[in-house]
């Protein structure tokens, strides 16, 4: 099913919650989103950055995967 704004909000809450004690992590995530919107980075570029940022947080990576277009997926190591 197509994801809705509520799904995005709930995912963003999850990210904020996870990094409650490290607000700079969420800021960095926002920077990645800004660069994507301004087309400084493309989809593979976003994947690369998010993969590094959320390294060690498989639940956040799996959540992020749901927003990726078909054919893209970040592998999660558990």
């Amino acid at each position: 099913r197509p994801l809705k704004v509520e799904d995005a909000l709930s995912y963003l809450d999850q990210v904020k919650l996870q990094f409650g004690s490290q607000p700079q992590m969420y800021s960095e995530f926002l920077d990645i989103m800004k660069e994507f919107k301004s087309q400084c980075i493309d989809t593979p570029g976003v994947i690369n950055r998010v993969c590094q940022l959320f390294n060690g947080h498989p639940d956040l990576i799996m959540g992020f995967n749901t927003f990726l277009p078909p054919g893209y997926k970040i592998d999660v190591q558990i």
């Binding site: 197509p2 995005a8 963003l12 926002l30 989103m33 994507f36 919107k37 989809t43 990726l68 277009p69």
Partner: peptide, 19 residues
């Protein structure tokens, strides 16, 4: 753009930050 749901996530992230 080829990644509409990712664009949606970016839009929501950036607009919710402004408000």
């Amino acid at each position: 753009m080829a990644a509409p749901q990712l664009v949606m996530l970016a839009n929501v992230a950036l607009t919710s930050e402004v408000s």
